Simulated assay, not measured.
Amino acid sequence: MSGVVVRYGTAKAPVTAVDDVSLTVRPGEFVVLVGPSGCGKTTLLRLIAGFERPAAGSVEVRRKVGVVFQQPRLFPWRTVGGNLAFALARHGVARAERAARAEELLSLVGLSGTAGRRTWELSGGQQQRVAIARALAAEPQILLMDEPFAALDALTRERLQEEVRTLAGVTGATVVFVTHSAEEAVLLGSRVVVMAAGPGRVIDEVPVPLPRGATTDVAALRGDARFAALRAELAAVTRDAAAA
């Protein structure tokens, strides 16, 4: 995206939500957007997904996109497999192939054998894994994740952080991830984009030169001195963004 401006409200009383934001995401990157509430992180995801159009500037997306929201938004009257079958049908997968493909997706997110269960029987973390599997049904090259772990307990959140790192390494997908957490940003991202509010704008970009990939030991990474230093640096920059 280049020079993007997003405005809400009326013509007589417009509110600028995002002002002159330019951002390039390269294939295979894991880019994390971090910043205070109201700085436009989710708005940028919506622009990339095509849910919104900018008032000025341009957004160019050359690859297929999948979206994971903060809440799983599953159909409670359908089974786990039924939720995935619905998504697969929308993406043109033949009826005869949907059950097998749904099981492949569930295996990818660590939920093999749960296709027949109702969504309300699952824990919050399991439901979010189903939501990730549903997003992968489209075989996206870009995965947009809007604070997907914000509502989860700390232990579940840590487990899913590790799984998302692994998933990104296995699939090779480009990921754009929104969070408020400096630690989560450093743990997951290969590059962190810091935003400030009033109106939303990019104020810094922080590369994360830490090991990545499906085989990375996340526990060891958390104990790495470089991780602690980057987390402290990013936390300071984020505090400045909130105060700006």
Rank of each mutant, 00 (worst) to 15 (best):
M1E: 05
G3A: 15
G3H: 14
V5E: 12
V5G: 07
G9Y: 03
G9F: 04
T10L: 02
A11H: 05
K12I: 00
K12M: 00
V15Y: 04
A17F: 08
S22E: 10
P27K: 15
V31H: 08
L33A: 06
L33D: 04
G38S: 09
G38D: 09
G40Q: 08
R46Q: 13
I48Y: 06
A49H: 07
R53T: 15
P54A: 14
A55S: 15
R62N: 13
V65R: 09
V67H: 03
V67T: 12
V68K: 04
F69N: 01
Q71C: 00
P72F: 05
P72Y: 06
L74K: 04
N83Y: 07
A85T: 09
R90D: 03
R90G: 15
V93M: 11
V93H: 08
R98A: 07
R98E: 07
A99D: 15
A100R: 15
E104C: 12
S107R: 15
V109G: 08
L111M: 14
L111R: 09
L111A: 10
T114A: 11
T114H: 06
A115T: 13
R117T: 08
R118V: 07
R118I: 06
T119M: 09
L122Q: 10
S123Q: 13
Q126G: 13
Q127D: 09
Q127F: 05
Q128E: 11
A131N: 07
A133Y: 03
R134C: 03
A137E: 06
A138Q: 06
Q141C: 05
Q141D: 15
I142L: 12
M145T: 04
P148V: 07
F149E: 02
A151N: 11
D153R: 10
L155F: 12
T156P: 00
T156D: 02
R157F: 01
R159S: 14
Q161G: 14
E162T: 15
E162I: 03
E163P: 06
R165T: 12
R165S: 14
R165H: 11
T171L: 14
G172R: 13
A173Y: 01
G189Q: 06
V193D: 03
M195N: 10
A196M: 02
A196F: 01
G200Q: 10
I203D: 05
I203R: 08
I203W: 06
D204H: 10
L210G: 07
R212G: 15
R212H: 15
G213M: 13
T215G: 13
T216H: 05
V218C: 08
R222Q: 11
R222A: 03
G223A: 12
G223E: 12
G223F: 02
D224M: 05
L230G: 02
L234S: 01
A236C: 00
A236P: 00
T238Y: 00
R239G: 00
D240M: 02
A244I: 02
